Amino acid sequence: MTDACGGHVLFLNWRDTEHPEGGGSELYLDRVATELVRRGNRVTLLCQAHGTAPAEESTPAGVRIVRRGGRHTVYLMAALVYLIGLLGIGPLSRRRLGRPDLIIDVGNGIPFLSRLWARRPVIVLIHHVHREQWPVVFGPRVARIGWWIESVLAVRVYRRCQYVTVSESTREELIGLGVDRQRIAVVHNGTPEVTGEPVPRTAHPSLMVLGRLVPHKRVEFALRATALLAVEMPTIELVVAGQGWWDEPLRQLTDDLELGDRVRFTGFVTEERKHELLCRSWLLLVPSLKEGWGLTIVEAGARGTPSVAFRSAGGVADAMVDGETGILVENEYDFFRRVRSLLLDTGRRTGMGGAAAVHARRFTWEKAGAAFHDVVTGQLAGARPAPLPQPIPRQPVRE
């Protein structure tokens, strides 16, 4: 089905799905952008250059990718590409980029502030608020500056813009920062359809962490829990699937805890390998400090694997039905205690896995793309759309 509206939508994001540190934010963008193209829009993504990736290319779905600048300079390059394009000067002229009808400004802590330099409608896409992450990644001074930019400057700059976020938790945080509730639409992530034959669980207790290896994911919590559990369960195994710049400290901690024969770092995994690992694992561990949405929780649930995550992490609470499809915990000791309890209780763990599979089927990328398209269409038409869609009600998920 195509609802052609002839709009040219420009996404501004610091990374694309091919970036080595790309994650759930980039996957979300790719899927909703693909849906916009399918429905008759023209879509361009401007993001940072990396490695040997070409400066410009198009995805098989028809999304054009323009890569300029680096980790920090991509924000300046976005403004230059847009302004030079409007002036029609040089190799970045609008004959190459094209004049967008709408800009989707993706905020990953540092915003592009496109509302200051672009005379076009702007939708602000926020996955989660970075209040807790600034001091984890940066020193006190930089953290204070970053948090002021995100929580004060950006809110002021985008005060008349439509927002989209991926969870009710993030919407409430944005409201707390001063964003008008009526200008925030909630569009959940989807979950890819499960492909491949089911794979049996391991005979021994097995845990899995899936995601980028960065400090705020707190993989250390999973490692320390495994060390404690190994005293009682000597055959336990933890698989750490993903890559990132925090890889070496995690490997060092693994050695310090004498877990070399119980922890396996896989690095990047293909979809086929991810399917196998999620099917085989008894539990998915999500010790992350903050998430806009628990994408890995729903992915694991689609394979009948329940999760344990932290209640304070935000969007994970929207991706899980606490006590039915997984468990939300309060602190690190509670994390260890609940993981141990589920590993020892086969009946409860299996029941949660079945409920998680039912729950996961409620979230599809087709639904997410359609809801996002509705917000974009409203902005292209000059309307002020109501928040879309309504939150999925908390209803029993057992069959």
Rank of each mutant, 00 (worst) to 15 (best):
V239W: 03
R273G: 00
R303T: 09
T235C: 08
S312M: 10
G304M: 05
S312W: 05
H275L: 04
L343M: 13
P249A: 13
S288Y: 00
F268A: 14
V240D: 01
L285C: 01
V329T: 07
W246C: 09
Q243S: 15
G244L: 08
E299H: 10
E291A: 13
W282D: 02
E332Q: 15
V339I: 14
P306G: 11
R251K: 14
C279M: 04
V239C: 02
F265D: 01
A319L: 09
T235E: 12
G267W: 11
S312I: 09
R337I: 05
F265Q: 02
T325D: 12
G242E: 03
G304H: 04
L259T: 09
E272V: 10
D318E: 15
G323L: 11
Q243M: 10
E258T: 14
L250I: 15
E271N: 10
R340A: 13
E248M: 14
A302M: 13
P234E: 05
Q252V: 15
T270G: 05
E237H: 14
T235I: 00
T235V: 01
E324Y: 12
R264L: 05
L257H: 06
D255F: 06
R338T: 12
V286Y: 01
S288F: 00
L342T: 11
R311C: 03
E271W: 07
D334F: 03
W245I: 11
L343R: 13
K274Q: 08
C279W: 07
G326K: 01
